[in-house]
Design a protein around this nucleic acid. Structure first.
Lengths: 129, 129
DNA sequence: TTAGGTGCAAAACCTTTGCCATCCC
DNA sequence: GGGATGGCAAAGGTTTTGCACCTAA
């Protein structure tokens, strides 16, 4: 199966790469509709699935009702605000050595790890005062 | 609101504490039905929500369709097998110092972090040979 | 030409919720 | 007694899928 270049897929990638927020499917859908008004939600889901599988984007594992995506597929850490729900990228080096140590200890074959900090972002800290 | 002691809730806790697997709601539901055949799925959901809020259990954030739970609510790390989907607890000290460092660097107020290793468990490594 | 892609709508799924009966404190 | 819970079923919201029609290569 050869991935084909379609306007829909290109636009979805463009939208994802153009933001630093970590959008939900619904947000992506609405953005893309500004350019392709009659695109269907199913197409968005299908393309996100493909892009995730080809590792062009990252699906962020969060509890809660809906998935979020990251246009940056390099492994990196996230912070999630417990109050406003926003997700931020964290500029902290990924600790590859940890993978190796745990792999040795457990016998698991470890490809990577996901790390998510939780707490309050600056704005929500102020709002709580 | 006083949490009341009911057979349903007690059984759900018992089931959760009695396993080291990280069950889905559906699995919990079926286990509990062995003791309380006419318990409803809604009750299971309601109690899991209560227990999560009172921090007696842990909801594990995973991508994928359904939630998973951990009867152990102490913060600890997980490993998830990409092939069989099983989740294992990792016996590795939680790095609290990391929270502090990132908090200083970012200005976020960090309460904790979640870490999940990904890869292949021992059995799935053998199966892949 | 043709396999992959799209739109549309229905289906599938997990989770939540309203209502009323029931039970615990 | 009275508020917290449970059972049941319907609703809600996200994600997937079947199908017929396109379209990029």
């Amino acid at each position: 199966m050869h991935a084909r270049r379609t306007k829909q897929r290109e636009t979805i990638i463009k939208v994802l790469r153009s933001t630093t927020c970590h959008p939900t499917v619904d947000w992506i859908y609405n953005e893309v509709r500004k350019e392709i008004p009659n695109i269907s939600l199913g197409t968005v889901y299908r393309n996100l699935k493909l892009l995730r599988e080809s590792r062009e984007i990252l699906e962020i594992d969060l509890s809660g009702t809906f998935s979020r995506f990251d246009g940056n597929s390099d492994n990196h850490y996230h912070f999630r605000c417990d109050k406003c729900g926003r997700v931020f990228d964290i500029d902290e080096p990924v600790n590859k050595e940890l993978d190796e140590r745990v792999a040795r200890k457990t016998g698991f074959e470890i490809s990577h790890h996901r790390l998510e900090f939780r707490g309050l972002c600056q704005e929500c800290q102020k709002a709580a005062e």
